[in-house]
Structures are given as structure tokens and as C-alpha cells.
């Protein structure tokens, strides 16, 4: 494993005796897209804001490239780019003026670099227009441009997809992929859209009540996940009886007029043959992979996330 870009050590936040974030400790290696999942009020946003110093920590430490956020805030922040919710820019300035403003805070950002980022995000045609005339999607792109100008090692996205339409979300996802691949940036995302997180992240941390419940690698989960096969037939009891001779009955489940069976995808042709030979009318057979949402609900005990 490469050196961790972000290290959290016992990060804790208490407000008025209530613990919002409780002893979070984990590392994020370089080049990884890391997601924060959790129900409303689980402490995702609080954690992210503690990492960037918007909210103070009650206890613990966050190290960005080994630099303490608390003790060397300015130095630590040179490695960070952030998009917090809808990136609000100065609307009375043009896109370019906004970028120049953010660039000036860092050392050594050249005009060429600004232009490079503008072109990379496809903003070159409208960069000299006032931001108040930008659509939300364009503002989001400008937000990404602002965040990556100084080639940060860590990109922090707090609810980046709020208010974006599906096309905008997809666009953002593509940029993130490109960035992690081309510039080796690590990304932390918190989002309430589980399906998005599933597509974006390499690993997710599941947080509930301020506590870290689990960290899982999505690649592993995808591989390990067993497939559910859903069978629709005209005669459910007959089909159940038939399949019980081949599969473990514990892995079968009748839900309404569907028969659910946990098995490998490869079993589908075999099942079809069995059913057809027994002259049971097959209306449909399809495989469903257990989604992140299912797993998430398992872990958090069915509490809904918003």
C-alpha cells in the first residue's frame, strides 16, 4: 500500500454533551476514491468539515500527507481541493476571474495552468461570462476547476451531486475517474445517492451515529456478492417442489408470485431446462446482484438514508 494521503486518528466531535462523531480512525491511500455512507445525521458532513477545518475537532487528529490540519492548517490545505455542496462562486465575477481569485491563494499557478484546467473541463467558450449566467452544471464544472487548479493530492467532495441532473452527475463522475487516473488524486465523497457512490467509489466507509460501522472495498463486494435469481412461473408450488430436489431449500424464498433463489448465474440455463421439462410455464428468469443499497440497509438496520 502506498503512503496514506489522509489519516484520521480518533477524530471526535462533541457538541453540548452529544457525540456527533465518535473516534473515527482510518487511512485513505493515494489514488483512491473513498465514499462516506450513512443515514441522515450520521456525522458524514461533520467529519468532512473537520478534515478541512470548517469545524473544529473535540479530540483527535487529521493528517493530510502527514501534515496536521490542526497545527499546520495553511500547509495542510495546500494539498486539498474542495467542492462543498453546490459550489457557490462569486456571481458578479466571470468564471475566469473566479479562477484567478482562487489561484492567487496558492503559489505558482500560472495562466497556462488556468487555461489548461479550463480546457480540460470544456469551459473555454464561456469562461469570460459572469457566473450568474451559468447553469448549475457549468457552475459545478467551475467548482471542479477551482478545486484542481493547484494539483491537490486530496479532493474533498461534500454532497457534490446535490441539485445536479443525471447528466450532470454522470459528467462529474467521469471527471473524477479521469482525475484519479491521470493525476493520481485521492478523493473523498459523501453523497446520499447510493447508486452514485456505487459507481464512483473504490471503498466506502459506513457511518452510523457517528461511529464507523464498516469499511468495505466495492470491488470485493461486487465479486463476492452472490446473485439472486428471480423466477416467475405460472405454478409456483410446483416449481418450488421441483427445484427443492436440486437446490437447498434454505436458499429459496417465495415472495408473492416470484420465486427467489440464491445461486450462481451459471445455474440459470439448468433451472430453465428443469422447468421446461416439467412443463411449467416460464414467464421470466433474471439475475439480480445485491446492490450496495441492500448491503447498506443490512448494516445500518434498515434505516433509510436521505
Amino acid at each position: 500500500m502506498t503512503e496514506a494521503v489522509l489519516q484520521l486518528r480518533n477524530v471526535t466531535k462533541k457538541i453540548g454533551g452529544r457525540t456527533i462523531v465518535d473516534n473515527l480512525t482510518f487511512d485513505i491511500p493515494a489514488g483512491e476514491v473513498f465514499g462516506f455512507l450513512g443515514p441522515n445525521g450520521a456525522g458524514k458532513t461533520t467529519t468532512i468539515r473537520m478534515i478541512v477545518g470548517l469545524i473544529s475537532m473535540t479530540k483527535g487528529e487529521a493528517l493530510i500527507k502527514g501534515v496536521s490540519v490542526r497545527n499546520y492548517f495553511e500547509l495542510a490545505m495546500t494539498h486539498v481541493g474542495a467542492i462543498v455542496e453546490n459550489p457557490e462562486m462569486y456571481k458578479f465575477l466571470t468564471g475566469y476571474q473566479n479562477l484567478a481569485l482562487f489561484a492567487r491563494r496558492h503559489n505558482g499557478i500560472t495562466k497556462e495552468r488556468i487555461n489548461e484546467v479550463v480546457t480540460m473541463l470544456g469551459l473555454q467558450n464561456r469562461i469570460h461570462e459572469k457566473v450568474k449566467r451559468y447553469s448549475l452544471g457549468m457552475r459545478q464544472r467551475l467548482g471542479v476547476a477551482q478545486a484542481i487548479l493547484h494539483r491537490p493530492s486530496l479532493l474533498i467532495l461534500d454532497e457534490p451531486t446535490n441539485g445536479l441532473d443525471p447528466a450532470g452527475i454522470r459528467e462529474l463522475r467521469d471527471y473524477l475517474r479521469k482525475l484519479t487516473k491521470e493525476e493520481g488524486i485521492s478523493v473523498i465523497v459523501s453523497s446520499h445517492l447510493l447508486s452514485e457512490m456505487e459507481l464512483m467509489c473504490d471503498r466506502v466507509a459506513i457511518i452510523q451515529g457517528g461511529k464507523l460501522m464498516d469499511i468495505r472495498s466495492l470491488q470485493e463486494t461486487r465479486d463476492a456478492a452472490q446473485t439472486k435469481i428471480i423466477i416467475e412461473v405460472d405454478d409456483i408450488p410446483a416449481a418450488e417442489q421441483l427445484l427443492a430436489s436440486v437446490f437447498d431449500t434454505a436458499r429459496m424464498n417465495v415472495i408473492g408470485d416470484q420465486l427467489e433463489l440464491t445461486a450462481d448465474k451459471e445455474a440459470i440455463p439448468h433451472i430453465t431446462k428443469l422447468l421446461v421439462n416439467a412443463e411449467i410455464e416460464v414467464l421470466g428468469i433474471h439475475a439480480v446482484q445485491k446492490s450496495l443499497e441492500d448491503q447498506f440497509l443490512e448494516i445500518t438496520g434498515g434505516e433509510m438514508i436521505v
Partner: peptide, 14 residues
């Protein structure tokens, strides 16, 4: 009120 405070504070300036 502009919502720019977060981006302003998340930067290499105390």
C-alpha cells in the same frame, strides 16, 4: 449569504 465562505476558508490561508 453567498455561500462562498466554505471555499474561502478551505484554502491555504488561516
Amino acid at each position: 449569504s453567498w455561500g462562498t465562505i466554505k471555499l474561502l476558508l478551505i484554502g491555504p490561508a488561516s
